[in-house]
Amino acid sequence: MQSKPVTLTILDVVSIILLGISTYLALVFAPTELVMGDVQRVFYFHIGTAWTALLGFILAAVFSVIYLVKKDLKWDRYQVAAIEVSLIFFFITIVLGSIWARPAWNTWWTWDPRLTTAAVTELIYIAYFMLRQGIDDPDRRARFGAVYALVGGLSAPITFFAIRLFRTIHPVVIGGANAEAEGGFSMTADMRVAFFFALFTFTIIFIDLFWNRIRLGDLQEKVEQLKLKVTM
């Protein structure tokens, strides 16, 4: 417990190296997009963080179900770890998207399905942490957290489809020509390299942070138990 596993240390180092390479690929290696200019380069990190955040939210919903069935606090700690890391990544996604939107759409924000769903999702998981903060008993905290993460995890995709009833201007970069989308572009081969490398990098970083956060949760649990024992 105290000593960090070697694999995790290696993963830490690998994450940093990959982040460096990915940044190089995105900023230098990939060609400048002709219509939008340099700002298009935030897209690599935008997609990288978005993909991992969604992965984390889906994992969290799965952990909810497992916890509710097995009632083992281990799954609760996994869930908190997944949601916390995803919340940070998703925040980066939203900010990067907004920065990109300013020159591309001429506005920081539009109420388009993806943007609105992103904002609502972020709020759901902030509410999740507010709920947990108000509960002292670890078992109850875990149960309520799991229920809320499940309800939230189901509601977020429905929100997305609900807003899809309206028109979107968000470009669909992968798979599909969206005639209405403004600011879409097609990727050159070098852009693709940077793009897939960013996806890979952020997946590794996510695993690394997720693992570290689980260890933090384990430590928290240990301290709490010892506190109970000492004050008894």
Binding site: L27, V35, G37, D38, V39, R41, V42, I92, V95, P103
Partner: peptide, 20 residues
């Protein structure tokens, strides 16, 4: 002419790295 939007790009990467 490709518009110069490097300011936004720098802002974006600064935000990403600072938050992480």
């Amino acid at each position: 002419t490709t518009p110069d939007t490097s300011g936004y790009m720098i802002a974006g990467y600064v935000v990403a790295f600072v938050v992480m």
